[in-house]
């Protein structure tokens, strides 16, 4: 077994927590797991990634290009920035909520709609939802990362069930944030339930 997940986002979106959750779930499921995280200067509003490699053998923590089984993009541009990691039969879960850079730092005109269309047009297996909006409805936009993991589990895109994932989450999320995360988790599961073919879903959701 070998399963490589890349999480991409902007510093502050909860990429590291999402990566730890997946790593712990993988260990609990009896696999070896290794992650590579962005910590330090680049966290300050910069582009960040976490590589999570799950499998029977210990391996280096960086996913080779063309190898990811799943890309979780907490932000459209960050998913697209790392698209070269996507493997042959890989899937994408992308958050439609864009984080706009301050114009002077951003340099180029960024059109999130165009980027999302590119992702949908080029990836066969893509789940595209405004998870930030969904998380806001659950109580806080900060739970978008948790909502995205729930969606990945609900759509059978990761090698463990949503129940296994929640069991880990419950232990790792501080008690005062547990309810709001549970709500975001459940709402996200409900959102993706019944989506048997993510190909269709890209247009529907």
């Amino acid at each position: 077994m070998k399963f490589d997940i890349l999480i991409a986002g902007v510093g502050g979106q909860g990429v590291v927590l999402a990566s730890r959750l997946l790593a712990t779930a993988a260990m609990d499921a009896g696999f070896h797991v290794t992650t590579a995280e962005t910590i330090g200067m680049a966290q300050r509003e910069g582009s960040v990634t976490s590589h999570i490699r799950i499998g029977d053998e210990v391996c280096g923590s960086l996913i080779p290009s063309g190898n990811a089984d799943l890309i979780i993009g907490l932000e459209p541009a960050e998913a697209a920035r790392n698209i070269h990691f996507l493997g042959m039969n890989g899937s994408i879960v992308v958050n439609e909520h864009a984080v706009m850079p301050s114009v002077l730092n951003g340099c180029v005109e960024y059109d999130p709609y165009q980027v999302l269309e590119f992702l949908k047009g080029n990836c066969r297996d893509i789940l595209s939802v405004d998870f930030t909006q969904l998380a806001k409805q659950a109580g806080t936009y900060r739970a978008a990362n948790v909502a995205m993991l729930a969606a990945a589990a609900g759509a059978d895109l990761i090698p463990f069930s949503s129940g296994d994932l929640w069991n880990v989450l419950e232990k790792m999320v501080p008690e005062k944030y547990r309810d709001v995360n549970r709500k975001a988790f459940d709402m996200s599961l409900e959102r993706v339930s019944g989506i048997k073919n993510p190909e269709q879903q890209a247009m529907d959701v």
Binding site: S65, R81, H84, P101, F118
Partner: peptide, 15 residues
């Protein structure tokens, strides 16, 4: 393993 989607074709991204 070669990338499935070529990075060259990605629309302009914010730095």
């Amino acid at each position: 393993s070669s990338p499935v989607i070529d990075k060259e074709n990605v629309p302009p991204l914010p730095v």
